[in-house]
Design a protein around this nucleic acid. Structure first.
Lengths: 140, 140
DNA sequence: TTTACTGCAAACATTTTGCAGATGT
DNA sequence: ACATCTGCAAAATGTTTGCAGTAAA
């Protein structure tokens, strides 16, 4: 990620390094506030604005993605793993599993065809319990 | 809609009537701000707070739905047409077409099964050009 | 040495809330 | 009558921006 920054001509600064380190191997979605909190205990002097600006930068480079959550006010992000895909989001632990969308793409085009619609893009998200949380739940 | 309100024991007031009238046959997504603006020219004295409170009420009754839009800061809504379904949203005119989700449901369950995931819900939205906008575009 | 980047604080935009008064039922 | 609903204005959230100083390159 850091490499990607410098390759694109952006400066590799302390705050960016710190944030990227915190983001890089997150497997769960996170918000700007999450990062702000985490960076505060790791590298005290990184400001709110920088968190937002860095996220926007990473977003524009395609290194992270913004994801929606029904009923959630603030934006959430996930590390972008590859090309087009979809998310399975655990409602308990927040883990995001990615699913390549070959079948989804087919479905999308057939639905669109039926409605005489020219597809520009699509978005799909499945919410539920991941296997770990389901098992943990059934033990109680 | 008005009927649904009174049946559920909510009062049918002037502001609610005015808002429902503005919402009822919208075929495009709208935001709280849109409504606020429209209601201002129709029935001057309806406040911001009432717009939000009424939307929340209609939402809780399942009469409208909240929809996301990538990169959109404020919440948007559409009139809820039936049970579970998905949206085709025109990026040009904003018209929302609903698609019943039988095939989507199947797909969702097979994806989830592969990932050992217990589905609680899913969300899908397709963005593109509706047939009308596509035709209009090709005439230019 | 240059100019992109940063922190801070103030500005913004949207949504929520407290409250006294208006209004359906 | 009485509780629900309303407008207003203030508060709460979440994000963006202006600016003077800092630090990559």
């Amino acid at each position: 990620m850091v490499q990607a920054l410098s390759q694109q001509g952006y400066r590799v600064t302390g705050p960016r390094r710190a944030l990227v380190r915190l983001i890089a191997d997150r497997k769960v979605r996170f918000t700007a506030a999450d990062l702000e909190e985490d960076v505060a205990s790791a590298t005290p002097a990184v400001g709110r604005a920088t968190v937002f600006r860095t996220l926007e930068l990473l977003l524009s480079l395609g290194l992270v993605e913004r994801v929606h959550t029904e009923g959630e006010r603030r934006d959430a992000y996930v590390v972008a793993e590859g090309l087009h895909h979809h998310h399975l989001v655990c409602s308990q632990c927040g883990v995001v599993t990615e699913v390549m969308g070959c079948m989804v793409d087919d479905l999308v085009s057939s639905l669109a065809q039926a409605a005489d619609f020219q597809v520009e893009g699509h978005w799909m998200e499945i919410v539920g319990l991941c296997s770990r949380c389901r098992e943990a739940g059934s033990l109680e």
